[in-house]
Each structure stands twice: as C-alpha cells, then as structure tokens.
Design a binder for these strands. Structure first.
Lengths: 118, 118
DNA sequence: TTGACGTATTCCCATATGGGAATATGATGG
DNA sequence: CCATCATATTCCCATATGGGAATACGTCAA
C-alpha cells in the first residue's frame, strides 16, 4: 500500500506547505485562483489543484463571481487539528512542568518513607 | 516532483493515522516497540518504521532499557501544529460568531445612516 | 460567432512512501 | 560461543502524489 491520499482527511491536506500558505492567504478574505497563484508564485494549474484538494476536505469554499471563482477559508475544518493537538497541551504547558515537580516530590517522599520503614 | 517526505516536518509525520495513534498511545507513558505493535495491531517492522519517522521529526524520544527500547512522547513538538491551527481559532469560536453579529450590526447602521442623510 | 481571459483537467514523470517478507543487528542468559 | 528475544533494516511493489506542459471549459463582451 502507498501513502494515503491527500484528500483523505484534513491532516493529509494540511501536510503540504503550499496548502498551508494558501489557507493563511485566504484567512483575511476570499481570493480568486489567479490571486492565489500570483501571490504565492504558483503556476495557475498548481494553484487550482491545491485548491481542489482543500475543497475536497472541506477546508475552503468556492463562490462563483462571473468568470472568477472566489475561494474562501472554511476555518472550522481546522478545529479538528487544533483539538487533536490540544489534547497534548499539558505536555508543553508550564502548568505541566509544575505537575512534573509535584510527581518528583511524591516519588522522593515514597523513597524516604520506604527507607525509614525498613 | 513528488510529495514531500514524511520526515520533512511534524505536519507530514502526523498526517499518517497510524502515527497519530502511536502518539496517543505514548501520551500516558513510554512503551516498547512490541507494546506499540501489539496494542495497535501492527507488525513489528511497521511499528519500528513509524517510530523511526516520529523520532526523526522529534515527536518521540527513545530510551534504552536492556534489550528493550522505550519510546516516549515528546509532546512539545506538537505545539507548532497547535499554534498553527490556533491562528484560525476565531473562525470557529463562538466569540467570532458574536463578532460576526457585531459587524452585521455596523453594516446595518451604515446603511441606515446613508439612507437618512440622503 | 469570435476573441480574450480565468479556471479546471489531463498527461507524464520523478519521488516517496506504507506494508509484507525476509534478514540483519543487539543485548541477555547459559 | 550459542540460543533467544527485541528491534532495526533491506527489498520489493502498488499507489498517490506535486509540478510542468498542453489543452479543454466557461463566461463575458463585441
């Protein structure tokens, strides 16, 4: 089997740096395909393809405006990533460092009491 | 060019569902390769390979314990993902919905005043 | 209808898998 | 040194790209 498709889920779609750039570019406001291509120095087909992937996983929406297609960010789709990473927040938070100290103190106490009892 | 390597950065490493499972498994405590393989129903070489990728991007650390290798989660490496997704938080937060309402109200006021002045 | 502009799609290729199978490497107890 | 258990590495293959080039579509104006 090969790697899973970039369209399989939000995590795969966002693994590509160019696509993350596109999302950041769309955060302030919607953009046409050419805008995206020009601002990120991408060939138009390349921009189109990336936008297609982002659309398929629900990260962006399209709106037709005459001959243009305006893509806008669907930020909510990123919440799943935020939440997933957030479940590990304790591991880098200062609060956890403090908790770590407490655990060390507890271990130290146990060692002391054991020594005293024997 | 092909897709970028899974070892190129944390985003690519985490794009693989199995690797996310491994990280979740290691969150509570360190585990040996066989533990990981058994608990996630993976072949031992498969587990080894995924752990190697995770190690190369700094998501896990290894500790030698006799014949065993104990892998532990290096949660801090996930902060970059959390922070990246977090910059879009306003787009799915209730607070934003409220801000959206405010903007609508402002627009409505503008329309009203324009009509009144003319 | 035709021309022009904005987008999407199709082809093709080099690249990087993820997993299974087989095998090499490492550490430990006898 | 040998047998055993735990891991890592190597091969091989099917699959899915990401990007460049060429091309098909779609919309709009004249």
């Amino acid at each position: 089997m090969a790697r899973s498709a970039t369209t399989s889920d939000v995590f795969n779609a966002v693994a590509e740096p160019r696509r993350r750039q596109i999302l950041e570019l769309l955060a302030p406001r919607e953009r046409s395909v050419n805008d995206v291509a020009r601002l990120l120095c991408l060939a138009q087909p390349t921009a189109s393809k990336h936008l297609k992937v982002l659309k398929e996983v629900g990260l962006v929406s399209v709106r037709e405006d005459g001959p243009h297609r305006l893509y806008s960010l669907n930020g909510g789709a990123l919440k799943s990533i935020y939440d997933w990473a957030g479940q590990f927040e304790a591991l880098w938070t200062a609060r956890f460092a403090r908790m770590d100290e407490l655990l060390e103190e507890l271990k130290a106490q146990e060692r002391d009491s054991e020594g005293g009892e024997k």
